[in-house]
Nucleic acid binder design. Sequence first.
RNA 1: GCGGGCGUAGCUCAGUGGUAGAGCACUUCCUUGCCAAGGAAGAUGUCGUGGGUUCAAAUCCCAUCGCCCGCUCCA
Length: 588
Amino acid sequence: MSNVPLTAAERMEKIVSLCKRKGFIFQSSEIYGGFNGFWDYGPLGAELKRNLRERWWLAMTRDREDVVGLDATIVMHPGIWKASGHVDTFADSMRESTLSNKRVRTDHVEPQSGNVLEYSGARTATGWSLGKPIRVLLRKGEHIESLRKRVKTLLASVHSVSGEIELLDEQNVGAVENSVDFHAEDGGALGEARPFNLMMRTWVGPTATDADIAYLRPETAQAIFAQFKNVLDSSRVKVPFGICQIGKAFRNEVTPRNYTFRSREFEQMELEFFIRPDEAIEIIAGKVTPWTEGADLSTPQPDWGWQMWHRYWVAERTRFYQNIGLGDALEYYFQPAEDLAHYARACVDILFQFPFKTDELEGIAARGAFDLTQHQIHSGKPQEVFDDELKAAAAKLSPEQKEALLQKRLTEEKAKGDCGLDEAAVRAWFERLFAGFYVPHVIEPSAGLDRLVLAILCHAYAEESVPDAKGNPEVRNVLRFHPRIAPVKVAVLPLLRNKPELVAKARAVYDELRQDLAATFDDGGAIGRRYRRQDEVGTPFCVTIDFETLGEKGPELQDTVTLRHRDSMQQERIKISELAARLRAAVR
RNA sequence: GCGGGCGUAGCUCAGUGGUAGAGCACUUCCUUGCCAAGGAAGAUGUCGUGGGUUCAAAUCCCAUCGCCCGCUCCA
């Protein structure tokens, strides 16, 4: 058996088609023409997604002692999004170059100086023409021929025209100094500023005035920060510990693309794992273990600072993906320091090679104390924890040791330039720290559930070339889901439909198995066809009831069935009494 | 938002102004038999949506929605 070669585009098309045909994923609101950026899960997709969600939740909560769950609302106090920075960063005003249609943020336009040229239009000898006038900036020192060539090249690529482009009625309309009306790269005049609001708005309360505006959350994480104190005070947890949440989030993506990959409504699985600041670790443990290549990340240690915790969570999350059969398909991207957002200290992306491109499944960020500090400032409610171990350890430090810690931090803050804390702020922070108080730092593994479903489908999809009954090669479609996450675990099949005693026996086996396994019953068509039907939706096991099951070939085969394996297509004979335990073990 | 391509049965697609099609899938029945191909019968469409041109539109024109590709955006 070998895999049929497919191009990336063919592969993706087949996956999309299979998902619709078999009830994994449907377009939202399809009977009304669809709705861009929204997708529904059909019967099998809902099961698959539920299995993945359940695995993540159990890996976080049941399998660990140091993480608890939360289930918060989608609509929250608008102040949360002010504090988190989303109201500002998600509502950019954008302008477009009229020449290239390239967008630029209004507040990022670089002032330009030079002469403004205007053309009434452009055309080619082959019949293409541009009706609208073109304004473009001839920068100081730029040769006019170089500008003409650049404009022609841009027009050719933007409008997909070939052949020589002729620019019409060139006019010099005057000089400008430090103008913010031209695109920095292509020199094209910028159009009107338009707001790009990436947060979805709604109104809470029946009056729907501006004062009632609220937002559908653009991420689930902020609810965790907003409820941090309540969880801390009610759950007998102490730092280091985590709070996890699974739920819907909403963004007005500029371009929803690539099937379900970038949707406007999507589901996130997020953990905020709260840790002590490195200074607290140093006081308590005497040192902070730096991360080194090959470090032992299996068991958290008291002297771990944020770096080790960050790497630990990368390893933990990798283990999760291995357990659902994606381990061999991941790539990692360590964001270079200069690309990090101002509040992040490190970020690792876990990527999957989708047929359309390799892109992010999960981001694991070390975010320092940024979020809780923001909420402390905006809400006016302290978000500090009290750490008695820290207080006791700090009490044993000499004034010189304390000053040394402080000076070290001061040097770090100075290195940050304008965004660093001043000396008074650092002294105040250490005073609280020595008394046992601090705002915890956080490691944030944030995964997209819909992206995971898509990755699982893409990874599982295979077309094999297998010989048919006559030995001719034939294509077999199969979804090679790990049995743990397969939407249906076992199909029960009577060999023939028109023999009531076979059907009755098969029904009895089905009724027993479905008590604790996702099972299905199929008596339609030839047996081989039914096997292939189950392969196509990724059912790992088929159980076939035949006349031997009924005892026709003697008592030793009575109450045995054929157990057929999806990937190898091998069959074995097994007693009905052993079936449930055997299958349960395989899907655990 | 810009440019290009596309939208016909559940799926894949043919159909360039004159009666809406094929293959697969599906439904029912027959078959003592294990890897999609046996036999018989059957159901399936506002040709994405709205408007226009025409005696006549799946076909031509306009608008709109959706999908794909590129640009753009992406805490």
